[in-house]
Simulated scan of single mutants.
Amino acid sequence: MKRIYILRHAKAQKEIKTDDFSRKLSKRGKNELKALFESLQKYEIKWDKIYASSAIRTKKTAQIMAKYYGYDKKDICLIDAFYEADEMGLFAFLKHLDEDIENVLLIGHNPALLKLCELLSSLCLHSFPTSSMLCLECENFKNLKEHSAKLVFFEHIKPLKEN
């Protein structure tokens, strides 16, 4: 079985002086990623490949997660098209992944990620907050169909902060 890990980037700074693409992670965002990582310790997670939007906040989120999991940050694939991608573009991207990949992490932006999760599974999500990760399982990428993936877990940052 293949696993698709979907992570929304961490909270970014609310700087008016810079464009959206260039916004950096906030201190809160970095702290939430640490809380997410600690919560994810109950799962066995190892990625064969990490793909992320090339936006600054998403790139930094990928680098932090790579560090936590011992993944070489030089192997992170930054994809410009992920910045403005919709769920169908991400779906098509997944269908073209090399079948040698067993576990893939996608890091991107809403609303595309929320809609992708709903497209791939039978979920109806009310939100997909920053620093939250959803994991789905499927038979393979090439024959991936709408609503065919099974939920493995959804670590939602809101409940993590309440503990």
Rank of each mutant, 00 (worst) to 15 (best):
G70K: 03
S22W: 07
G29A: 06
A66S: 14
L119H: 14
Y71C: 03
E155V: 10
K145G: 05
K73S: 15
Y69F: 06
K161L: 15
H109P: 01
L120N: 05
Q41F: 13
L114D: 10
E32I: 08
L151G: 03
L90S: 02
I56F: 12
E118I: 12
A62Q: 03
I4E: 02
I79L: 11
L144M: 06
E15F: 06
R8Q: 11
I50T: 07
I6F: 05
K115W: 07
I79W: 01
K95R: 06
Y51D: 10
S26A: 10
C138S: 09
H96A: 05
D75L: 08
L78F: 10
L113H: 10
D75E: 10
Y51H: 10
F154H: 12
L119F: 14
M88Q: 09
K2D: 02
S26Q: 04
K95Y: 01
K30F: 09
S131H: 11
N31A: 12
K34H: 11
L105I: 09
S131V: 09
S122G: 15
K158D: 05
L151H: 07
D100L: 09
I4V: 15
N103I: 03
G108L: 02
D86T: 06
L123S: 07
F93N: 00
K150H: 08
K59W: 02
K95Q: 05
L33M: 10
K2C: 05
E146W: 07
D98R: 00
S127L: 09
L36E: 07
K73C: 12
K59Y: 05
P111I: 08
S22C: 04
I79T: 05
T130G: 12
I56K: 12
E139D: 13
I107D: 00
H147E: 13
Y68N: 04
E139F: 07
V152K: 08
A112H: 04
L123A: 12
K145Y: 03
R23A: 00
A85D: 01
E162M: 14
A66N: 10
G70C: 03
C77R: 13
R8A: 08
E99D: 05
S26M: 04
